[in-house]
Design a protein around this nucleic acid. Structure first.
Lengths: 345, 345
DNA sequence: ATGCTGTTTTGCAGCGCTGCAAAAGCGTAG
DNA sequence: CTACGCTTTTGCAGCGCTGCAAAACAGCAT
């Protein structure tokens, strides 16, 4: 491996000090046009590219941020991942991915061990196994932005959509269709289930706003938000005396699992049971039937989170912890509205 | 941000030179038990953790490998991604992700610009927009392992399953069901479509082996392997006079798209048309109906690729380019075999 | 004691860059 | 011609670690 071109090589060719080359390369202010051009030319002639490692060591920063998510093969996260990478890259940062499998110990190790000695400068974190209390005790030296639905409690930045409002909208949509025996799949009435609880709250509020009573026994808990749990929960519901005529699922995967069971049992969606999901993953749009859903603005979530994290990283005095809300919208598809018109695709 | 503990701090406390501490930390051979213990204790007392950046700068390596894929939200890649991260991490390497969107220019820039000055030491590359010729001209200084179905041509390592054999198996499965009007969706008869062409070859071979004639007009090309193209191609097929009674789709996404169209048109899968996919993504197992598929051993692909890449990175003399085959298997589900027995999930 | 071998430890330089503060240049005023 | 303030350029040290080769040490034979 031949030696790479260094700052000094460029300096020599351009007839200036290496520090000046550094200034030019980094676009610092006080450089005469004349020297700037001269250096520029030398850079091009030699094909110089800065050594990121050396730069970061000298600067005391790694130029990388970590994205910590529970699962990578969950469509919601892989879609989000893209946006985060894009946002970070455009700001000169690289993204390291870490998958926790929702293991609290893994999550804790990450935020406790801090920045693992300059492997990354900050973390965008989507917690699953850790609850508020554990999160609140994180190393305050580690810039951290939390995604998802937990409120920050004032100890760190937090980016998410308004889950209660979104869930209320989803529920209202089902009520608007004339359905009255509404089930909810995905509640998690324990410390780490804050996201789920907000959705349950929205579900309740929608009923209350219309003077309707929530069928408490139709609120089904699931340990996770995946197809399997959705399928299983739906099976439970169908085994009852009076099964629901509509279901609000706390994720699109849960909805897909629920639909799977419904179709398997010979029931029609939405004629017999209307189903709405949450997250707007691509699969939902192409399943049979396409799934109505709450669509969070993932691009917005990603850029907001990255911007806030970089602010926190670069700011000399730590900015206050804030709640940042990204927009969402209700997307109505066949799983609630029914076949509109047969299409080619 | 308080100063971190350095090698020198540990050395001072342990009463040895910093070089010795380094030796202990890196597990080098010739260290007496006595000093090893003494240093170990100091390390723990101070909570020392090596600065990865400094280490890599000194070593002249970045300790990171890049994984370059066309799309991250494609389930196949996001599932593969996990395995690659796991494999790399367990060998002390980090993974940088790059999504190319299949843009040949982006891909070329990546392999041409080489290691972007120590940002990464090697690349696991899943090409889409670049063909053989372009790939062959890559910077020989950059360790590179190519995933997917292209043959290496002797210029770089290559990891993949035996596509022709797998495709033949898939096709034979359809023939075994008694189907005779077989369609294939996904052919790409141009330079960058080598993967598709291998599958088409397997499709043909299966016919030939049984003395059957391939219906050439039922081999449909698609620019990409996604749901949309699958749905569209299926629509084309159904608009013909004699639509197929079975379809071999070159990816599960294509299969899902095709099924979407079939169901939309009121046709039954597999009774009217049997559908088999390729990749064994999780969605396929939970769709309606679950999709039969060719299942490549992704874990094996990932570990093989990472191991080979690390060998190439660390080896003083470049090892010869090789073809490495990962196993695959045929997974039969309802989209070809029909409902076996109604299940709860 | 002396020399020789092999093991363990050390010092130094340097990876390629940036922070800092001093030095040099330069235009204008006194 | 000197002084002053401002802009531009430079030198040096150092980020924290490892490669290299020399130094110190130990064990053993002479």
């Amino acid at each position: 491996m031949r030696r790479e071109v260094t700052l000094r090589d460029v300096a020599e060719l351009a007839g200036v000090s290496s520090r000046t080359v550094s200034n030019v390369v980094n676009g610092y202010a006080n450089v005469t046009e004349r020297t700037r051009v001269r250096v520029q030319r030398a850079v091009e002639e030699l094909g110089y590219r800065p050594n990121v490692l050396a730069r970061n060591l000298a600067r005391g920063r790694s130029g990388q941020i970590a994205l910590v998510v529970p699962y990578l093969d969950t469509p919601y996260f892989s879609e989000l991942l893209q946006s985060v990478i894009r946002a970070a890259r455009s700001r000169g940062y690289n993204v390291l991915i870490d998958q926790t499998d929702g293991d609290p110990e893994h999550e804790r190790a990450f935020i406790a061990h801090g920045s693992r000695r300059l492997l990354f400068d900050g973390v965008v974190f989507s917690p699953l196994g850790l609850d508020q209390r554990a999160l609140a005790g994180h190393d305050p030296n580690l810039p951290l932005v939390v995604l998802g639905e937990r409120s920050s409690n004032g100890t760190f930045d937090h980016v998410g959509i308004d889950d209660v409002a979104a869930s209320r909208e989803a529920t209202e949509h089902l009520l608007d269709l004339g359905r009255r025996r509404l089930a909810a799949i995905g509640d998690q009435p324990y410390a780490t289930g804050e996201a789920a609880q907000l959705r349950t709250r929205g579900f309740r509020e929608a009923h209350q706003a219309r003077g309707l009573t929530v069928r408490e026994d139709l609120i089904i808990g699931t340990p996770r938000f995946n197809r399997k749990d959705g399928a299983r929960a739906m099976a439970h519901l169908l085994d009852r005396d009076d099964p629901p005529d509509a279901v609000f699922c706390y994720s699109d995967l849960v909805a897909l699992g629920a639909i799977h069971t419904l179709v398997n049992r010979g029931l029609r969606v939405p004629e017999d049971v209307a189903v709405i999901g949450y997250d707007d993953i691509e699969d939902g749009a192409y399943s049979n039937p396409p799934v109505s859903t709450i669509s969070p603005d993932k691009e917005m979530i990603a850029t907001t989170a990255v911007d806030r994290l970089l602010l926190r990283i670069t700011s000399p005095t730590p900015p206050p912890a804030v709640e940042l809300r990204a927009p969402h919208k209700l997307v109505v598809r066949e799983s609630t509205a029914g076949r509109v018109t047969p299409r080619a695709g």
